[in-house]
């Protein structure tokens, strides 16, 4: 990593913005994926599973945001977020009913 980039990444405004993005955007993506997974894995019929996924999604979102802000290392936050999002995305794709799109 060159020096300029390292400098930017250590600036306070960058750190604040990066964490906010992790919470808001990263959190939103992960919320959707986990709510979708939940709706796929629940045993009842699909309409009520979708409802369940939707009504709990905001609680999931809040949980992720709190987590993002409770971990000290920003790099750790992004690493965990991206890995979890990738895993969830892969499983979601595998479980997705055929002919949806």
């Amino acid at each position: 990593m060159n020096k300029q980039l390292t400098d930017i990444m250590q600036k306070e405004s960058f750190v604040v913005l990066s964490r906010a993005l992790a919470a808001i955007i990263g959190g939103y993506v992960l919320t959707n994926l986990s709510a979708i997974l939940l709706s796929y894995l629940l045993p009842s019929q699909s309409s009520s599973n979708v409802m369940t996924g939707m009504v709990v999604s905001y609680a999931i979102y809040a949980g992720i945001v709190i987590w993002v802000y409770s971990v000290k290392s920003l790099q750790h936050v992004w690493r965990c977020l991206l890995i979890t999002i990738t895993i969830c995305a892969v499983i979601t794709t595998l479980l997705m009913p055929e002919g949806i799109f």
């Binding site: 994926l33 699909s46 979708v50 939707m54 999604s57 905001y58 949806i100």
Partner: peptide, 28 residues
């Protein structure tokens, strides 16, 4: 406002578009 702000869950089970959305509303 969840049908506006959390459309992902709905789309992942019912597919995109107005028609699929209506199918979901009919079910619930």
């Amino acid at each position: 406002l969840m049908f506006t702000t959390m459309p992902g869950v709905l789309t992942a089970s019912y597919g995109p578009g107005e028609e699929n959305r209506d199918r979901f509303y009919d079910a619930i």
